[in-house]
Amino acid sequence: MAAPNQPAVLAANVSRHHKMGATVVRALDGVSLEVARGEFVALLGSSGSGKSTLLNLIGGLDRPTSGTVTVMGRELAQMASGELAAYRRNTVGMVFQAFNLVPTMTLAENVELPMRFAEVPRDERGGLVRSALARVGLGERAGHRPSELSGGEQQRGSIARALVNQPVLLLADEPTGNLDSRTGAEIMDLMKALNREGMTIVLVTHERAIADRYATRHIFLSDGRLSDRPVLSGTAEVAP
């Protein structure tokens, strides 16, 4: 695959513009950044600054208007839609603010879902589901539906789902946004533990405190561009 000293993520002059009639919304405008392997990067910025847009581009859910995103030495823009889907199920794992578990499926079925798309042999799935749920401390809740779980449990379930296909990159978009601070800290502790085991993590958050406590590096976004210092205007940002 990629050379060991290659960065996990390399974004070069990435823009994502949305045409809204006559006007163009520049959700992301000429962003370049690098994430090394094993890093825990926090992507900070006020609401609407383009954090989710950047994360979705790295996750292969969206394609940039211009510029390139390269993950583990592979340029996402070169991939056909089928390859991009394979990239999403094998190389990255995504965690969202809204948990996004399928409500009609049990926790175990939710965790199994990525393996269905990855065509993991059926007889291997049970064990993989169990170990992924055990890893996030939900071994006993496999048969429960999302509605029967607390927010923190749901988010841990979605992390288990993100991990089950053994990705090299974990992308989390405000994973604690819907949780109280204690539960949020549990989730962040889990992410930190994963990072110590070698997982590269890009975390989107607007909570400076979380970024300071868990991330190894901060990247600030403002109006779709990188900024050197945290922008102090805006309600969501908390000064250290």
Binding site: G59, L61, S81, G82, A85, A86, R88, R89, N90, M94, F96, N100, L101, V102, L113, P114, F117, A118, R161, A162, N165
Partner: peptide, 16 residues
């Protein structure tokens, strides 16, 4: 809608 979005996010292809 949302379920289809989830499936795509965790690796379902258009063809799937």
């Amino acid at each position: 809608r949302r379920e289809i979005g989830i499936m795509k996010a965790i690796g379902a292809s258009d063809a799937d």
